[in-house]
């Protein structure tokens, strides 16, 4: 805790969650063993880990496309969540014993602020809940010591139910609610948008006998690669408005996982910073496009550059 001063967001990370990254690292929590792989993304996460060690945030807040909720934008709100998370798609790669500390006060506050802004939201208060692999993978890759409390936010199904604008408007409100709750909490928070970029993927593992066979890993298509580069370039240039304009096409043409709302939530919480994002690494996992990117709001504040309300 930082005392009675107003809380703030230190920064945000685009923190993709392919379980392959955990598998490749061989942490003790994950049962399957590997010989490595996907180093470009894992090395990128090393920089995130170092940054978090230096910053020592009070909390990491993650929005995960793999905790899908039909009604509402729900928030993990149990002090301690433990269990075994097995990825239903890649069970041979990800069987992870998780042990999470949740910042329940902040979680409940985010949910309350979301409701105040007209969203449907409720705290998830069941201790038997099994945390999704997206949340776990992003948090593990960012902070494998698990020594920073977390808040997990669900991906409401609205992007797949409403028109894109309505759905992303909800994510913008959710970001506002998150920011208000952080400010009221007095805490220093880091945000994580747990999503890939382009999301078309191979329908079979290229080499089932060796999932980490990097000679068989590549982007699904050149068109996807071009989309990823276009989006990354806009983010690196801090051209948030231009990004907003092309997001619907990106979602449609590259089946981009940003459709789940994680990136929009994070950008909104950070007040759409006109700040060049730092690319730490890009890589493909079973054909999808993944970037580890950082928005360091402490740099923005020290430089006096601004943010924008949409």
């Amino acid at each position: 805790m930082s005392g009675a001063s107003e809380g703030r967001i230190l920064g945000g990370w685009l923190a993709p969650h392919p379980p392959h990254l955990v598998y490749a690292e061989n942490p003790p929590q994950n049962e399957p063993r590997s010989s490595g792989g996907w180093e470009m993304l894992r090395w990128a996460y090393d920089e995130c880990r170092a940054k978090l060690k230096a910053q020592r945030p009070d909390v990491i807040i993650v929005h995960s496309p793999h905790w899908q909720t039909t009604v509402g934008h729900d928030v993990l709100a149990v002090p301690k969540l433990q269990g075994l998370s097995v990825d239903p798609i890649f069970p041979h790669l990800f069987r992870y014993k998780f042990d999470l500390q949740v910042d329940v006060d902040l979680a409940e506050s985010i949910s309350e602020e979301a409701r105040a802004l007209g969203l449907t939201s409720k705290p998830m208060a069941n201790p038997a809940f099994r945390v999704d692999y997206g949340t776990i993978t992003s948090l593990h890759m960012m902070n494998p010591d698990w020594d920073i409390p977390m808040v997990g936010i669900s991906a409401n199904n609205s992007p797949y139910f409403h028109d894109p604008k309505t759905a992303q408007d909800e994510m913008i409100k959710l970001g506002e609610a998150t920011r208000i709750a952080i400010q009221k909490s007095g805490k220093r928070a880091v945000l994580a948008a747990s999503n890939s970029l382009s999301h078309l993927h191979f329908s079979a593992e290229p080499n089932p006998a060796l999932p980490e066979d990097m000679s068989r890993e590549h982007v699904f298509s050149h068109a996807q690669y071009e989309w990823d580069v276009r989006v990354i370039n806009l983010l690196r240039a801090g051209k948030i408005f231009e990004l907003m304009n092309i997001l619907p096409d990106f979602m449609e043409e590259a089946v981009a996982e940003v459709k789940a709302g994680s990136l929009m939530w994070m950008l909104s919480a950070m007040e759409f910073p006109q700040l060049p994002a730092k690319l730490h690494g890009y890589g493909n996992v079973i054909g999808t496009g993944n970037a580890v990117m950082e928005w360091d709001l402490t740099e923005m504040h020290s430089r006096g550059t601004g943010s924008t309300q949409l």
Partner: peptide, 21 residues
């Protein structure tokens, strides 16, 4: 990645639905 067929002989536990928790 294709179809899965459950082959674990016995399965038990407690389930909490992701949406309707």
């Amino acid at each position: 990645l294709g179809t899965m067929v459950q082959a674990q002989p016995t399965i038990s536990g407690v389930h909490v639905d992701a949406s309707w928790h």
